[in-house]
Each structure stands twice: as structure tokens, then as C-alpha cells.
Design a protein around this nucleic acid. Structure first.
Lengths: 107, 107
DNA sequence: TGACATACATAAGTGTTCGATGCATAGTGA
DNA sequence: TCACTATGCATCGAACACTTATGTATGTCA
């Protein structure tokens, strides 16, 4: 399933709200949680991570992964937590507005 | 509120499922139905209408509008109705998958 | 040694939406 | 009569985000 442009950020923020994680781990967790429905491409993921870090919502550190290799772990900042809350509200609002249109009685 | 890229088409199809309508009317109906939340810009709307017509989901005809002026009325084709049904399913599926992630228990 | 999973990253291409702008007609109110 | 607002079409450029493709490198296991 293709991602709707604009929804990747909140997915990442939510994923990181559980625990710090590296890019590959984020991708894998999302794939599993969505039962293969969302396959986040690296070309989308890494730019998104940099974008979010640049905006101050994430910070990163090289650490050792579960497999013993070096990996860049991202964690939510305080600003990131606020942004996650905002994004969740936005998403729900959006879904509500869409419903107003899509569930209007058809002619 | 900004539109998520990819959601405009289904909004247009749904709007036209009620009755044939011209661009300006689509824009106005959407604005009213969403209580000002979605303001579809002309620069997005007209290209989208042409796109949908080109794909065979809409057909257009110049007719007289309620105000007595000539306007291009778009109506759903049979293919457009099928596409609307498909799009509605897609949207609902998407919302469900998003929920799986966004409502996962936070750490 | 060769395949596969892990892990990073960038570049090119595509598609969609937004914002700005332009044209034209009609009605309303000062 | 002038200005403003609403109606209605349309195009163009910029911005943005995602996809596809590609490259690098390490570790593990058969």
C-alpha cells in the first residue's frame, strides 16, 4: 500500500514514542505492526528522519544495535512529543472532515 | 486545513456522486460540507478535474448554471462510480492501518 | 564463498497540491 | 457610474514528499 504523502512523519514519531530506534528498526516495526500494509522505503525514511531531526523533534546518537553493529538511534525530544500530540490531533481532525464528505448521503 | 495529497480525487468523485456540478460548485459544496475546513484551491481543482476526465471517471458538458451563466458541468461515468467505490475502500483501509500504528500503546 | 539480513545514505524522477495570476460576466450598493 | 463582490474558467511555477534505483559496508550462516 502506498503511503499518503504527509502521513509518514506522524508514523515515525509514534514509532519512536515507544523507544529509541534506528532507521531500519523503524521500518521493520512499521511493516510488522501494519501487517505488511505499509512498507516504508528507505528513500522516504532517511530524508524524513533528517527532516524531523532538523526541526528539533528527534535527536540521534550512534549506538550498538541488538545485532552488535553500529546504528544511528533516534529518540523523541520534548518538542517531538508535543509535535506527536499535535500530529495525532491533526490526523483525527482530518479523518473527521473526510468522513463528513464521504459519508454524506449519496444521490 | 491543507489537503493530504491523494485525497482530493475521492472528494471530487464523492461530490459528483450527488449530482453533476461545475468546478466552482464543487469547491463551494466541499467548503460548506466541511465547514470551511477544506478550501480546495482552483490550482488544485481544475487539474484534478481534467485528470479524472482523462482517466474516464468523469465527463463534462457546457450547460447553464443556476445563475444563468455557462459553466462546465462534470458528471460521474460508470467507471467513475466504480472508482469512487474503490477509493472509498482504499481510504477506509488506510485509516484502519494508520489506527493500528497510532493507537498502539505508547511507551 | 555466496547469499541474505542488517544498516546507512543519496540521486533522479514523478505526481500532487498550493499560491499567484489572468480573463470575463453579472449583480449590488454607494 | 464606479467599485466591489461573486461567479466561473484556466494556466504556470514552486514546493514538497514519496518511489525507484543505486551504492556502500558489515555480519552471519550454510
Amino acid at each position: 500500500m502506498e503511503l499518503l504523502k504527509g502521513t509518514l512523519d506522524v508514523l515515525i514519531l509514534k514509532t519512536l514514542s515507544h523507544r529509541p530506534l534506528h532507521g531500519y528498526g523503524i521500518s521493520r516495526w512499521l511493516r510488522e505492526t501494519t501487517r505488511e500494509a505499509f512498507q516504508v522505503e528507505e528513500g522516504a525514511l532517511y530524508p524524513a528522519l533528517r527532516r524531523l531531526e532538523k526541526r528539533g523533534f528527534l535527536e540521534s546518537r550512534w549506538e550498538e544495535s541488538e545485532t552488535g553493529r553500529q546504528a544511528k538511534f533516534y529518540r523523541l525530544t520534548a518538542a517531538g512529543k508535543k509535535e506527536l500530540a499535535r500530529s495525532l490531533r491533526s490526523w483525527h481532525d482530518y479523518v473527521d472532515v473526510m468522513a463528513r464528505v464521504l459519508e454524506s448521503p449519496s444521490g
